[in-house]
Amino acid sequence: MKAPATLFETSPGEVWLEIGFGGGEHVSAQAQANPDVGILASEVFVEGLAKCLSDIEEKALKNVRLWDEDARELVDLLPEASIDRVFILFPDPWPKKRHHKRRIIQPDFLDALSRIVTPGGRLRFATDVRSYADEALEKILTHGAFDWQASKADDWRRPPEDHVRTRYETKNLGDIAPVYFDFRR
């Protein structure tokens, strides 16, 4: 079952979900490059929402819908096998060990994602924080619903061809060069 067509003016060929879009650079660039794709995007920070809304209006994007609450709530509302791609790009790393339980990549969230991602659908996770990269990769691989698509180190060390750098990514605040983990359901 796909996301309800009434979310978009025309019925999209695919529906993509971006979780924690920050300033929305990736959202608006992907929407502009893929006008036949419906893009759902979740962000809780008002400044990021405002920036993304400004881009949507300026570029007259008709294929983006924003969610201003916790992404986990949105994922719980989505129908089974309704999302073709999920982007989780440079999420809050919750760097203190005692806060790691707040990181979005957790077994229960992976259960929820595996429910909404179509068979053959894709998940991209990117970070520049070593502890989060290691933990996320281990949790996703252990979960088993998603197959890592890397066959060589450059597959995760270099940005994918369709990647759009975000404002956060350009700040280089992490402790490693960015890694890009692509998975298939």
Rank of each mutant, 00 (worst) to 15 (best):
V46T: 15
D70N: 10
L66I: 15
L61D: 05
G24H: 08
V46F: 14
A41V: 08
E69A: 04
V37Q: 07
H26P: 02
Q30D: 05
L40S: 09
V46Q: 14
L61F: 12
K62W: 04
G24R: 03
F87T: 05
L78P: 00
I39P: 03
V44G: 10
I39A: 03
A29M: 08
I56H: 01
S82M: 11
P79C: 02
R85L: 10
L66A: 11
Q30M: 15
V64C: 07
G22T: 05
I39H: 08
A50S: 15
V75D: 04
Q30N: 10
W67I: 09
L78V: 06
E58P: 00
P95D: 06
F87P: 03
A29H: 12
R72M: 12
D76N: 11
K59M: 15
V86E: 05
S28M: 03
I83T: 05
V44Q: 13
F45G: 03
G48K: 07
D92I: 00
R85W: 05
L66P: 03
N34K: 13
P95I: 04
V64F: 11
D55Y: 13
L77N: 13
F90V: 03
L49Y: 13
P91G: 00
R65D: 09
P79Q: 07
A71S: 09
G48V: 02
F45H: 15
L61S: 08
I56M: 06
L78K: 00
R98D: 07
N63T: 15
L78C: 05
A33Y: 09
Q32H: 12
V27A: 10
V37S: 05
G20W: 07
E57I: 14
R72T: 09
D36V: 13
E25W: 10
A81V: 08
A33K: 07
F45S: 10
G48I: 02
A31T: 07
V27W: 07
P93S: 02
P91T: 01
L40K: 06
P93L: 02
A33N: 11
L40Q: 09
G23H: 10
R72I: 10
P35I: 12
V75I: 14
K59N: 11
K62M: 08
R72D: 03
F45N: 13
W67H: 11
F21N: 02
G38C: 07
D84K: 04
N34V: 01
D70G: 04
P91Y: 01
